[in-house]
């Protein structure tokens, strides 16, 4: 197991290096004059030139590349243009907020969708099964900004049960904060319930049909025992993999929900950075999101390896 972990971590570092390189290429290949972009079309050329100087866009490409790699290692990307503060100070609070929302969303989604998936798999092709599948498909096919606004309007405005903005006042406390986050988290549930339930259902069906389940049943083990000991272990592997990648993805992928609930998370911070041409913040953000993605997928892989020792031998999944 240790060897497996080491190998996966080493591979992740290689991926991180490639990611940094790609970010460098994207920022440099796009036909653009960053100084002009930031200063606007009417700024005098001197201002544009001095901005470009500050950005270091006139330095040799190799120097710029080396600087970026050094920044990645030290995780110090200098000052954000827009905020005039170190990138780290701007990004960390936003990261914290995104983490809270994503974690709450998944804490709510995962148990019910796994339960629904297993439930549907055990009653394959019944009415209940079809309901879960169809409901899931339908709910995850409505864009989350639409379900978000609808929830906000009905539960927040019409019924007045929950706050319509997601950011709690600083004195709200943990429970208070959860109340504020509940509406956007529910919108996340609407999107992910169907997806995770369907993956779980498919995994469970495959496991139920497999030889080892049949063997276990023939050995005379009780239905419950078979389910927990044998089926779950195998059935949930795709579910874990999907949750891992989706959590990583959602840290920056909730732009619509953040906008609707005025929640200043990482997604809207980075979208604004892209439109403001705040390159230090943007570069740091893309790399941070990449690191988070790698960490969550790595964690998922480790959990899978623990659940199913054979997958360790199969090497890495990608």
């Amino acid at each position: 197991m240790t060897r497996y972990i080491l190998r996966r971590v080493a591979l992740s570092l290689v991926t991180l290096y490639l990611l940094a390189t790609m970010v460098f290429i994207i920022v440099n290949v796009l036909p653009d004059d960053p100084g002009r972009r930031i200063a606007g079309p009417f700024a005098p050329q001197e201002i544009v030139d001095s901005l470009n100087e500050r950005l270091g866009v006139n330095d040799p490409l190799l120097d710029q590349y080396a600087r970026l790699l050094r920044n990645v290692v030290t995780f110090d990307f200098g000052e954000s243009f827009k905020f005039g503060q170190p990138v780290k100070e701007v990004m960390l609070p936003a990261l914290g907020r995104s983490a809270k929302l994503v974690v709450l969303g998944f804490v709510l989604t995962v148990p019910i969708s796994i339960a629904a998936g297993i439930f549907a798999a055990r009653r394959r092709n019944s009415f209940a099964d079809r309901s879960v599948v169809t409901l899931g498909l339908a709910s995850s096919s409505i864009p989350e900004f639409v379900s978000g606004v609808t929830l906000q309007f009905v539960i927040g405005v019409q019924l007045g049960w929950l706050p319509v903005l997601a950011l709690a006042p600083s004195d709200a406390g943990l429970i208070g904060e959860l109340r504020y986050l509940l509406l956007p988290a529910l919108a996340l549930v609407a999107v992910y319930f169907g997806y995770i339930a369907r993956i779980t259902r498919a995994g469970t069906i495959m496991a139920l049909d497999s030889d080892y389940t049949r063997t276990a049943v023939m050995k005379g083990l009780s239905g419950r025992r078979v389910l927990t000991r044998h089926v779950m272990r195998n059935a949930l592997q795709p579910t874990v993999a999907v949750i891992g990648t989706q959590i990583g993805y959602l840290f920056s992928g909730l732009i619509g929900l953040e906008l609707i609930f005025n929640y200043p998370g990482l997604g809207s911070l980075l979208v604004n950075a892209a439109s403001d041409k705040d390159f230090p913040l943007l570069t740091a953000g893309v790399i941070l999101v990449g690191v988070i993605y790698m960490l969550t997928t790595l964690t998922a892989d480790l959990i899978i390896a623990w659940m199913n020792p054979r997958s360790r031998l199969a090497g890495d999944r990608a």
Partner: peptide, 24 residues
């Protein structure tokens, strides 16, 4: 190629799309 794909996958999709579209 696997490493490159892994790196590509870790880039936030919508963000990169927005960036490319805002420039081009």
């Amino acid at each position: 190629l696997s490493r490159i794909i892994e790196a590509l996958l870790s880039i936030p999709v919508v963000l990169v799309a927005l960036l490319i579209i805002s420039v081009l």
